[in-house]
Every structure is written in structure tokens, then in C-alpha cells.
């Protein structure tokens, strides 16, 4: 465990030195500030729009960050040959994957929390109510972000970085669909599509923008169960990534 923690901290330091992270974090912050400066045009309840669009912006930022952080980690290690000495002595392949994931997950969690705090600040500065459910909502965004991170990490072991981004994006879009919308993509093969959809996570589980914006209380148990659901999908994707990486020839 201490080996994974040390490697995760090393990954964290490496990632925070990269311009990709700061670029995406800054662009998302600028987008949030832009959402905060949209004039109300006398539309009532503008605070709701800010919360809704802000949380949507954070979700997209989280997707971009997952791609930016994880798609290059293994290909870069392989190109620079630093993966060889790492795996030769101090780390097993499982520890390598878990350490890389943990480091990137820490960076992503910090970024999402900062974005949510900034959204709260923008709301407060504009004189709007800051909902209490912003924290649980951001925790669900973190759960979604970790899943996306695990997906990108999984793809990075068998695809090139340019292919990784569109694949993750495609999965992200498909996971937003309801089972009915998904099976409608291929008329005539509803059963196959239904079975396929069951393998993919239901991202709408993590979307509680509407209730947060409308101040409708969501039970704490829901947040817990949805977080467990996200963690279960993340662990499933990580186990696939580990299985692929264990069999991967590094020569």
C-alpha cells in the first residue's frame, strides 16, 4: 500500500507540472466566470441557470481533464522507457496502474472541488443562493470523473492517445443516453442494444443539477448509493485495465 501511495504522490507531482492540467483547469474557470457574467435580461431565477450551466461546465471540464491527464501517462512512460526500471524492481504491474490512477484521481478531485467552490463564489458574488447540495453534487461529479479517468487509463493501454480521446468521448455520449434512446440507435436489434446498454453505466445517476438548482432535497442515502455505483464501475474498469496491462508486452 505504501508503494502505491508513494507512486501516486510521484504521479501527482508529475501531473501538476504539466501544462495540460493548468490549461484545462484555467479554461474551465474562465467558462464558469463567463457563465456568472451572463446578463439576466430580466429573466427571473437566473441563479438556477447559473447552477445548471455551471455544473454542466464542470462535468465537461472533468471529462477533458480525465482525457488530458490519463491518455498520455502510459504512452509517455513507454516512450521514455521509464516504465521498464519501474516495473523491474519497485512496482508490480497492478501497483503501477493503481498508483497512476490514484495520482490522477487526486488531481482531478482537487480540480473539481476548486471549480465547485468557484461556482459557489460566483453565485454568492452575484447575490444568489448557494445550495447546500453543491457539495454532494460535486462528490457525484468526482465519482463520474473517476470513472472517466479509469476508462481513459484502460484505453491508454491498447490504443494511441489520438484514438483514446474520441473513444472516451463516444463512451461519454453513449452513457448519457437512456436505454430507449440507445436501443433506437440500431432499429431491429433492440435486444442486442439493450444488452449492450446494460454493460454501460447510466450517467444520469450522477446528474442532479435540476434538484440542486431548484432546491429540492435529495436523500443522503441516494448520494451514497450513487457514489458506490460510480466506484463499482471505476473498479470494474480498473480491473480491466490491470488485466490488459498484465498481458501487455512492453518490448
Amino acid at each position: 500500500m505504501s508503494t502505491i501511495r508513494a507512486f501516486a504522490l510521484m504521479t501527482l507531482k508529475g501531473l501538476t507540472r504539466r501544462r495540460t492540467f493548468w490549461g484545462i483547469a484555467l479554461v474551465t474557470l474562465i467558462a464558469l466566470a463567463g457563465i456568472g457574467s451572463i446578463p439576466s435580461y430580466d429573466v427571473t431565477g437566473e441563479g438556477r441557470f447559473m447552477i445548471d450551466m455551471g455544473l454542466f461546465g464542470i462535468e465537461i471540464g472533468s471529462l477533458l481533464l480525465a482525457i488530458g491527464l490519463a491518455s498520455n501517462m502510459f504512452p509517455r512512460d513507454r516512450e521514455s522507457r521509464s516504465v521498464m526500471p519501474l516495473l523491474a524492481v519497485p512496482l508490480s504491474r497492478t501497483q503501477y496502474v493503481l498508483g497512476r490512477f490514484a495520482g490522477a484521481a487526486l488531481v482531478q478531485t482537487a480540480a473539481i472541488m476548486v471549480w465547485c467552490a468557484c461556482l459557489g463564489l460566483i453565485l454568492a458574488v452575484n447575490g444568489y443562493y448557494v445550495p447546500e447540495a453543491m457539495l454532494p453534487a460535486s462528490i457525484l461529479l468526482v465519482a463520474e470523473g473517476w470513472f472517466l479517468l479509469a476508462v481513459v487509463l484502460f484505453f491508454s493501454f491498447w490504443t494511441s492517445p489520438p484514438l483514446n480521446a474520441p473513444l472516451t468521448l463516444l463512451l461519454f455520449i453513449v452513457c448519457q443516453m437512456t436505454p430507449a434512446q440507445f436501443s433506437g440507435l440500431l432499429p431491429g436489434a433492440e435486444r442486442v442494444m439493450d444488452a449492450l446498454r446494460m454493460l454501460l453505466p447510466r450517467m444520469d445517476v450522477f446528474h442532479i443539477k435540476d434538484p440542486v438548482a431548484h432546491r429540492i432535497p435529495v436523500p443522503t442515502a441516494y448520494f451514497l448509493l450513487a457514489s458506490v455505483y460510480g466506484l463499482a464501475y471505476t473498479s470494474f474498469m480498473l480491473s480491466l485495465a490491470i488485466a490488459v496491462f498484465r498481458r501487455r508486452d512492453l518490448k
Partner: peptide, 20 residues
């Protein structure tokens, strides 16, 4: 479905790790 999928996926993850 959240409870069911969580249990199934956690078991699948453990199974994949063991098999690999």
C-alpha cells in the same frame, strides 16, 4: 439497479483480477 449493478460490477472486478 444501482444496488444490483454495484454488487455485480464489484464481483466482476474481483473475478477479472483473480483470473488475470
Amino acid at each position: 439497479f444501482m444496488a444490483r449493478d454495484s454488487v455485480v460490477l464489484a464481483s466482476a472486478a474481483a473475478g477479472i483480477l483473480m483470473l488475470s
